[in-house]
Nucleic acid binder design. Sequence first.
DNA 1: AAATCCACCAACCGCATTCCC
DNA 2: TGGGAATGCGGTTGGTGGATT
Length: 285
Amino acid sequence: MGRPPCCDKIGIKKGPWTPEEDIILVSYIQEHGPGNWRSVPTNTGLMRCSKSCRLRWTNYLRPGIKRGNFTPHEEGMIIHLQALLGNKWAAIASYLPQRTDNDIKNYWNTHLKKKLKKFQTDLGSHNLAPPADNSSTNNFDQFSWQFSGNKQVSKLLNSPNSSSSSLYASSTENISRLLEGWMRSSPNPSRRNTDHDEMLHATQKKQDQELVKSCENSWIQDGGISNNIVTIPKGKSTCESSGVVAEKTSTNSTSPPPFTYLEKWLLDENAGQVEELMELPMIFT
DNA sequence: AAATCCACCAACCGCATTCCC
DNA sequence: TGGGAATGCGGTTGGTGGATT
């Protein structure tokens, strides 16, 4: 990569966006629609690189973005999906259209990671640690997965002294609202959903969904924390390889169903959850 | 009241992928 | 088909404000 980053050009401004810049950007997008970011700085006179404009739009100005506290439901979905997909924040965000990948990533890094760590410690002190023979697995991922499958643990995660990202009034919220009407009449200009769509298609074989779901539910109900260990391959995304996304290393007879089943169940359930999560109007549809 | 610490999150950076000529 | 440009994505940083000492 010999070429300089676009934002290194002379005269390109960095740092926090001002309300004035936001308005300029929003006005432009309102008129021309998102995309063709290269032309945005030139046409608007903004002293920002195209990348920065895109980021500002997708992470902050885009209408329909929900800010503030993550609900326990959202938290649960993030944990589920992180265990399933790894740090594929964009893919995870596609399941939570009101949240940006950046938001989810930040929330994971600042809240959930700590919670999982804390819980891992708590587990250790309560003799609930996973079987010792797990040296080849990613402990953290194991816990992620256990969280994702155990409702009691989810409750623990959502204990009162946990999360506390505060709601804050954003001046750009108002700007976003201005755009909502426009977005309603526009054909999904900025929504990223390819991953989501692909995964939904992948789960369209519905014939055994109920069975899978009931299997999974009973497993969750049966499963003590220490009983069910599903390991997620260490490293980046587990969805990059098709097919098997995790290897089961359960140590007793009440073993969980194969992860591919869990995955099906998860995807199926999430398809419904996504709708449930839409407490705000679906402005993209 | 001032200094320090800490948590949060917007924004940047660099690499990967996709697009287009 | 190859190369450059644009775009997308994930990791990281740094500013800010609240909490604590």
